[in-house]
Amino acid sequence: MTQQPVALNRTDKPAAVASATKMVIRGVSVYYKTFRAIKNVDLPVYENRITAFIGPSGCGKSTLLRTLNRMNDLIPGARVEGKVLLDGEDIYAAGQDVVDIRRRVGMVFQRPNPFPMSVYDNVAFGLRLLGIRQKSILDEVVERSLRAAALWEHVCDNLNQSGMALSGGQQQRLCIARAIAVEPEVILMDEPTSALDPIATLTIEDLLQTLKENFTIVIVTHNMQQAARISDYTAFLSMDDDRAGYLVEFGPTVELFTNPKEKLTEDYITGRFG
């Protein structure tokens, strides 16, 4: 019996509306010295979609996220095997400019980390790094970014106030504004709401829904409900006996949370893990 597909806003979105693949994680393993933190992960990241990484603590979600803009380079002894393609190009290939990769793949952190400077200077930080000095351009981009981060109304009458004087939720939105000011293609978010209260959390979640129209978003969250609420695709990672994180299941969020294919996923999302 054939059924007419019913357009139910969310259910068909990831599957029915095709989206280009922005990034591909291909056979990626991450080592810290001799310890293997991630083993052999294969995963696509779709353009203008929110992809969530979920899994028990220690499964390497954040580590995997940080391979996407080579933040792991900063950890002495960390080594990445495999490929991470950004628009088809391996960002770990020889001759890749890390600075340029990080400009294209921005990041927002767990704890809001406004720099110890004014709101304006925070947002302009990345722009000045790019060599933009012209006041009119800076003004325009700062305003545009703050508006996109739903913060403009709260700070427009005093852009000289310190970023650290804002509330936690506002600080995180400032960090988002700072990240999008340099017009990245992908934004990585490492548990961006875990330090925020529920209201601020929902504000950020709403913001992500508008941001995905212009950016590709990858978010790590320890809050499954959050992943279910906001993401289009979900990757469930778990830890093997050798404590290496691996991908258990990847799929459209709607499917993963209503009808997961893997028993382990079901056990995890229904809270019957272990």
Partner: peptide, 14 residues
């Protein structure tokens, strides 16, 4: 907090 330094580096700062 290490996020401060990482935040700057993530924006492409040397």
């Amino acid at each position: 907090p290490p996020e401060m330094r990482e935040g700057a580096l993530a924006l492409g700062a040397p």
